[in-house]
Design a protein around this nucleic acid. Structure first.
Lengths: 336, 336
DNA sequence: TTCAGCCGTCGAAGCGCTTCGACGTCCCGC
DNA sequence: GCGGGACGTCGAAGCGCTTCGACGGCTGAA
């Protein structure tokens, strides 16, 4: 293994000069820097990560905690993870992968052993048990999602309330007067995942504002459940013409169900969703949707962490504005 | 930060004794060990990962390189990654996540800086450019998939050839005489990913052995392509009664296409697939399939690495025997 | 001309841990 | 009763890097 002293000898300087030439933390003459760089290349020198971490108390590694519970849309997680890795690399950091399963002990472990400099935690719940832990750690963290009491922490996510509102606004703007929200499976609400409830809030607020008749239904992630919800909605709200779907798994089956019940999309029924763009595009009837910007959330999360590591301040809450793409599943309400 | 000297003082022993008490690399009296453990708990001591890595030249971190190109089934990758992390933790290791994008340079970097002790590389191609690199690294690696020339390396994967054979055996056993394989998108074959071709080999060999009439068709990952393939197959092989599908994305659309062409599954047509169990189960017509054992591959890969890190020998090739689950998409050929 | 001060570099002191050799003690076999 | 191991512990020497203080030489202001 070639070490810094080898480079120093080869370049005719001291090891500390090599270190400064690499880090730029002290001025080094161009001449010397060039010699050092040449030696580094010539010898194929790579600083030893452990030694560096020990001496500088910086590992240049980020922890990423991914959820693995059922009901989570896997491609979104993956996209997010890839985005985190890519952005982290751009900032000269690597990413350590942890699973939810490791729990609080896992977070404490990687933080306390100084394996990582900072943490990113996905799938945060309203009353997440990891909150106090994250507050007590001596290293910065960013949470994806909003807990009930985020003070002292840094959170980022799509503005799900605004997303719910935007869907309703869109439908209202097209003349729809009776709308429904088909949401996540009941357990998601029970578990009190914040984002699901925020969509409901936004949906309801906007519907009230526009004096729309509205309903909200959770829905299991099965075609059968989707069909049941469709039937139930139509029997309770025969005049229903606008639906907002916030549940990846049933987007397609629900659309099918409505069509089998005699409603054409978008002729008789407008459907809009909150889901990843790829999903919205890939359906038989491409659906007007608000994107789940997982890649953007990932890179923004890393950027927030980098600022924190640099000792700069960051906002406690970062809400990404919803972005709607029309795809033909929504249309003006037919004159009745 | 509490360090080993603090623990030593608190327990009334020397730092080296604490180290040996933790690692067990030298005999320590029960009495002393207990005192040390008590002190560790009392002080909340956590060994500094960097210091440990520097002194022992072991980071206890594994690198996992995940693919991100299109056409790969994301849930499989995710399941694999989770399995790797879980198994690694069981062996007291963590996992550093790298993307394919980082390329060879990324592999070299994490290996040469001693950030990781060993590497797991997914989605290996027949003539993967990373092969020579992996051979030259001073740390062990395991590849998921088989390149053309795996000598000197360690590979593991489902035995895709046997999987292709098993599908045909199953169909032949049910009396089917005319079969077809609908495979991955053409680019997968062009890229020469080994597993796709192995399925073809197995399929063809078994079909020949049983003197079946057979055909092989690549297929793009779109419903339209699936429909086209279905039509083409039926026009060329009107007597077709058995199909093997090795392409997650089109499993459902292809089934639909056949049914729309007037064939009932499994009444008129038996379908069997090579795909993840969850996918096979979740279809409208649950399909008899050979599982893609991503979780098992992941944990086995880690176990192989651990053996290598322990200096024990491992086989160059590990082929996981295919496991078929009947689910009702296959049946005895109707008497004609 | 002098001296303050900056620039560029060096040497040395750790960072917190593991590991090697050494050493005293105790037990067992002869 | 004595020598030789095994056992249990200690001290010290690093692992390879960063960083702090120091220092010589040079510039520019006085």
């Amino acid at each position: 293994m070639v070490k810094i002293t080898d480079v120093a000898r080869h370049a005719g300087v001291s090891p500390s000069t090599v270190s400064y030439a690499i880090s730029g933390k002290r001025p080094i003459s161009d001449e010397t820097r060039r010699r050092v760089e040449a030696s580094i290349r010539a010898l194929g020198y790579r600083p030893h990560a452990g030694a560096r971490a020990l001496a500088s108390s910086k590992s240049n590694v980020l922890a990423l905690v991914v959820p693995l519970r059922a009901g989570i849309h896997v491609p979104v997680v993956m996209q997010f993870a890839v985005s985190v890795v890519t952005t982290a690399r751009r900032h000269d950091h690597d990413v350590l992968l942890l699973t939810q399963e490791e729990g609080e002990e896992g977070l404490r472990r990687v933080a306390d052993t100084a394996l990582v400099d900072a943490l990113i935690v996905m799938d945060v719940q309203l009353h997440d048990p990891r909150l106090p832990l994250l507050r007590s750690l001596d290293r910065p963290s960013v949470m994806i999602g909003f807990p009930a009491a985020p003070s002292g922490l840094t959170c980022i996510d799509l503005d799900f309330k605004a997303a719910g509102e935007a869907c309703v606004e869109h439908l209202a703007g097209l003349g729809h007067r009776v709308v429904a929200l088909v949401g996540s499976p009941p357990e998601v609400y029970v578990r009190q995942t914040a984002f699901a409830q925020r969509v409901v809030q936004g949906f309801t607020a906007a519907a009230d504002r526009h004096r729309l008749s509205s309903a909200v239904r959770p829905c299991e992630a099965s075609p059968a459940a989707a069909r049941a919800v469709a039937e139930q909605l139509l029997s309770e709200q025969p005049a229903l013409t606008g639906v907002v779907v916030h549940n990846e798994a049933i987007l397609e089956p629900l659309t099918d169900a409505f069509e089998q019940l005699g409603l054409r999309v978008p002729g008789d029924l407008s459907i809009t969703a909150i889901c990843p763009d790829e999903l919205a595009e890939s359906l038989r009837v491409p659906v007007t949707s608000i994107a789940l910007p997982s890649a953007e959330v990932g890179s923004r999360a890393v950027e927030l962490l980098m600022r924190k590591l640099d000792g700069k301040g960051v906002p406690e809450a970062t809400l990404l504005a919803p972005r709607m793409t029309e795809r033909g599943s929504t249309g003006r309400r037919a004159a009745s």
